[in-house]
Design a binder for these strands. Structure first.
Lengths: 137, 137
DNA sequence: CGGTATCCTGTTCGATACTG
DNA sequence: CAGTATCGAACAGGATACCG
């Protein structure tokens, strides 16, 4: 994905790459959930729901994610209003995350996609292997 | 999305960026439908179904796509077995595309995602505007 | 008509180091 | 504990030109 949505605060609609914007909502949603860790983070959050979960625990549940990427992913989700962030002002601070109602509402379509993926990705993999074996000939 | 799946034929499982592979099927599916033009191409194909559609017509229906990207997107979909390609050996050649049954089966989950996006992206946009207005304070 | 090949820019993301 | 800052590598995808 190039020209994906800028996550920084210096974005204004009409600035760059959106000559053919407003892009369709689906495309823009995919820009969000299509980033490397977002779907996994949302899934962990959803499985934990309606309980809160802390940063470190979340990290443990998303094996392979770096601190930086978990932080960035969560900030993006919070900014979108899909995730709520609550800070307990202790020292050291304890930060809790959970899906908002909006975030939870995404779980339906998203889990449908998960089911499809689990069901059909093996077939897609087989198709790719076949394509490799007969190199267009 | 970085480290997205290599589309070329020189890929072997275990080669690069997949230290934490096998990645979950959902992530791998999103690598596919999350690329810039795939969801739009699939949508056009689905709306055209069960009829075939030609390259140029497809291009007209996906405003903004370049020849290169349409070609690449279709090749990827064909390789995955989501789209079938049929060449009429005339001169100049006429090439027709259509969703396979597998591709059609993806339409369910995908259109659920479209409905969610159309319903809720405005709210996400509002949330982002709010985040911009109160700069974390 | 339906593609390839090449060049180039922006973006994503991993690694690493530092902080309140 | 829960981040932020910085660097570098890899890649997606736009522009353009050419081809059977």
């Amino acid at each position: 994905m190039t020209t994906s949505r800028p996550r920084g605060r210096d974005w204004r609609p009409g600035e760059r790459g959106d000559v053919l914007d407003p892009r369709c909502p689906t495309r823009r949603l995919l820009d969000r959930i299509g980033t490397k860790w977002t779907s996994m983070v949302v899934k962990v959050l959803a499985e934990e729901a309606p309980d809160e979960i802390r940063f470190a625990e979340l990290r443990r549940r998303a094996p392979g994610i770096s601190q930086k990427m978990l932080s960035a992913t969560l900030q993006s989700l919070v900014r979108d209003g899909l995730v709520a962030r609550r800070v307990e002002p202790t020292v050291p601070p304890a930060v809790h995350y959970r899906l908002t109602p909006l975030g939870l509402s995404l779980e339906g379509p998203l889990s449908a996609l998960r089911v499809w993926a689990e069901t059909h990705m093996p077939e897609i993999d087989r198709n790719n292997q076949l394509a490799d074996e007969s190199p267009a000939h």
